[in-house]
């Protein structure tokens, strides 16, 4: 289990609910050290323990918690670096959706030992798409739903996302694009961020 994933959950919780809440989750999960290192590896069981503990302490289903994590990754100022990296995927939201196939490869380019589930986008009639995520990373689909929602906002597109559950290790997300240029969207300059650093959040 890559530390980036666990570190993300930690930073999200700290930035959203405060350090005390994170400490409570960490102790509920039985962690000896509440601070994860983004560049180290952990036992996969740690993720499951943290998710269970988050559900208990926050009194919130994991699906909603993980969606919030996805949104946070794009929209929180502390994650500006990651938002920029995602925006490199395409000049508009459709191009961005098509770039998702490359997401695991792009992640690996940035951090060589970081493996994400396979991502495959299928085009359906009109403006509907289906995103298939396959690989063992519990909750990844819900993070993606939150992340895609925030990216649609970022591009100024109007789209609907639905998590259609998991079959074995495959998760399905359906995407209905209503309008690509619905709102202004956020600014993205190619050359603005070479010195941007993420605060321990994923790249």
């Amino acid at each position: 289990m890559h530390g980036l994933i666990l570190r993300t959950l930690q930073i999200f919780t700290q930035d959203t609910y405060g350090y005390d809440t994170w400490s409570a989750i960490a102790s509920e999960a039985g962690l000896e050290n509440p601070d994860f290192e983004a560049m180290l590896h952990y036992d996969p069981a740690v993720l499951e323990a943290v998710l269970r503990a988050a559900e208990t302490i926050l009194n919130k289903p994991n699906e909603a918690f993980l969606e919030d994590v996805g949104t946070y990754l794009v929209s929180h100022p502390n994650c500006e670096g990651l938002r920029r990296l995602l925006r490199f995927g395409g000049v508009d939201f459709i191009e961005f959706l098509h770039s998702l196939d490359d997401l695991p490869d792009r992640a690996r380019l940035a951090v060589a030992d970081f493996t994400l589930p396979d991502v495959e986008l299928r085009d359906h009639a009109g403006d509907s798409f289906e995103l298939r995520l396959s690989g063992h990373l519990p909750g990844f689909g819900h993070v993606m739903v939150g992340l895609l929602r925030a990216m649609a906002d970022d591009y100024g597109a109007l789209a609907l996302f639905e998590h259609c559950g998991a079959q074995g290790e495959v998760e399905l997300i359906t995407i209905t694009l209503v309008e690509t240029a619905y709102a202004e969207g956020r600014d993205f300059k190619l050359g603005a961020g070479t010195r941007v650093a993420t605060t321990g959040s994923p790249v």
Partner: peptide, 29 residues
């Protein structure tokens, strides 16, 4: 102030910019 549209789709310039940012963030971590 160049944008993606200033490069041919086959040009690797944008990928290179991506890589520079990704690597500097990873190096930072």
């Amino acid at each position: 102030a160049l944008t993606s549209a200033d490069f041919a789709p086959t040009d690797l310039a944008v990928e290179m910019l991506y890589l520079v940012e990704a690597k500097s963030a990873a190096m930072d971590a």
